[in-house]
Computed example of a mutant assay.
Amino acid sequence: MTDLKKQELEELAFRVRQHIVKMSTDGGCFVGASLSAADLVVYLYSEFLNISKDNLQDPDRDYLFLSKGHDVPALYGTFVELGLMEESRLKNHLSTSDNIYWHPNTKVPGIEFHSGSLGHLPSVAIGVALDIKMKGGSNKVICILGDGELNEGTCWEAALVANAHKLDNLIFVVDRNQFQANMPTEELIPLEPLHDKFSAFGAAVKRIDGHSFEALEEAFTAYPFQEGRLNVVIADTVRGKGLPSIEARADRWFCNFTQTEVEALLEELKGEKLATIESETLVVR
């Protein structure tokens, strides 16, 4: 990945995070988890998947299913930046005048399937991937899951079925931010060793830094990871990424900030971006 491409993606992810923060008022949203998933969603839509505002009904398009549906602010923010949605619609968040609320809604163009009840979309993604295989298509199918979501047995059943049908056109992406709602996953129901567990279920697994666009590029350009096996990417992320004041905090999984707090968080986000740029510049020197 070139430095220019990396900078473009980082700038895009920064703008998406701005949208997420702005949606965390007037009723609030799952801001921490949305911030952890922002880089994943930005990379997949802008670099990996064949999805655009011009091909949403094209049978040859790729598919993304956001199984951890509470991260939908990251999805909507990405839609805005890539021209799939008007930015003005984000102001209708949780309003009865629109269909934009806490979970994906198929009435929003670009949403393939509604979600919110965790553990359900891996099975939907399997159905689509199997249909593509049977028709001889080359579409890619992504299903983004939360790490806490993996406590749903349907996720592991889905992994078994995907491998039974050799669905190497399907990728499970796990947003591994180490939290389930307001508790660390390893204190509630431990998931580790997660790589070994997916491997034992027959999947070809890669574990990466979910905030590194270079790591994302290296992993996804290797698709399919192994012929005839479900692809799994475990993306290690940080809840609340980009806002040090709420990063990795158990009490910041859902937030309804005041407008004054939102403005302060936007300034913090901007300051963190500038600090990162300065740090990278010093390293180069």
Rank of each mutant, 00 (worst) to 15 (best):
W156K: 08
A181P: 01
G127H: 09
F113P: 00
G69C: 12
N50P: 02
F257K: 00
D39F: 08
E87N: 06
V233C: 08
H93F: 15
L160H: 11
T185E: 06
H195V: 14
S36E: 01
I189L: 15
I20M: 03
H211R: 11
C143L: 07
V161A: 15
D71Y: 02
A33E: 10
N105M: 06
V232L: 06
S245M: 06
E280G: 15
D131L: 07
K197R: 15
A158E: 07
V262G: 01
L82W: 05
I277H: 06
M1E: 04
V80R: 05
L35P: 05
L56Q: 12
K53P: 03
H120D: 06
V124R: 08
I111M: 07
M183C: 10
I208Y: 03
L118H: 10
V42I: 05
T260P: 00
E192K: 09
D209H: 08
G110H: 07
I20K: 06
E278F: 04
F254R: 13
R285W: 02
P104M: 08
A33M: 00
A250H: 08
S279G: 03
T106Q: 14
G83Q: 10
H93M: 12
A159T: 08
L94M: 13
L170N: 12
S52M: 01
K166W: 04
F14Y: 15
A159V: 13
K107E: 11
D196F: 00
A38E: 00
L194R: 12
S34K: 05
M85H: 05
K6F: 00
V21I: 14
R176M: 07
F179K: 06
P190Y: 13
P184N: 02
K107W: 02
R89T: 03
R239H: 03
N182M: 12
A129E: 03
G69H: 09
G242Q: 03
L265T: 02
Q57P: 01
H114G: 14
L150G: 03
D58S: 13
E261R: 13
A275Y: 04
A164D: 09
F113L: 11
V262P: 02
L167C: 07
V124F: 11
A159W: 07
L191I: 01
L191V: 01
D236Y: 04
I246S: 08
R239M: 14
L266R: 06
V41I: 14
K197S: 04
G240D: 05
S88Q: 14
